[in-house]
Computed example of a mutant assay.
Amino acid sequence: MSIFVNSETKVIVQGMTGRAGTFYTDQAVRYGSTYVGGVRPGKGGRRHLDLPLFDTVQEAVSETGANASLVIVPAPFAANAMIEAIEAGIGTLVCVTERVPQHDMSRVKAALRGADTMLIGPNSQGILSPGQCKIGVMPTVDARPGNIGIASRSASLTSEILAQCSRAGLGQSTTVGVGGDTLHGVGFVDCLKRFRDDPDTEAVVLIGEIGGAEEEEAAAYIRDSGFAKPVVALVVGRHAPQGRRMGHAGTVSALGLGSAEEKIDRLRRAGVAIARTADDVVQALVGFQKAA
Rank of each mutant, 00 (worst) to 15 (best):
G44F: 12
G38H: 04
E84L: 05
P199Q: 13
E160C: 06
D181Q: 10
E214L: 01
G226A: 05
L93S: 03
E63K: 14
I150P: 01
L49G: 07
V232E: 00
D181L: 03
V11C: 09
Q242W: 12
V231P: 02
A220R: 14
A168K: 10
C191Y: 04
G131L: 13
S259F: 03
P74A: 04
Q125G: 15
R276C: 00
S2P: 08
V11S: 04
A249V: 12
G42S: 11
M1A: 15
A254D: 07
R19T: 13
V108T: 05
Q58N: 07
R223C: 09
R30N: 14
D50F: 08
V108P: 02
R223P: 00
P230W: 05
Y31T: 08
E217T: 05
P230E: 06
E160R: 13
L183C: 07
P52I: 12
S129C: 11
S159V: 15
T174P: 04
T158Y: 01
V61Y: 01
L112M: 14
G18S: 03
V13R: 02
R194M: 11
E87G: 03
V13Y: 02
G171L: 09
A203K: 13
T25E: 04
E261D: 15
T17A: 00
V5T: 07
I12D: 02
R46H: 13
R244P: 05
A168S: 13
V236R: 00
A249F: 07
A75F: 00
S152R: 02
Q102A: 14
G114E: 07
D197R: 14
G89E: 09
G226R: 04
R40M: 06
V231I: 12
R238E: 11
L112P: 05
S152A: 12
Q242K: 07
I3P: 01
F288G: 00
A220K: 13
V231L: 12
V204I: 11
A79W: 01
F4C: 05
Q102C: 08
S152N: 01
S124T: 06
G32R: 07
G212M: 08
G287W: 12
I264D: 03
D279G: 09
V252W: 01
G250D: 09
R276A: 08
V137M: 14
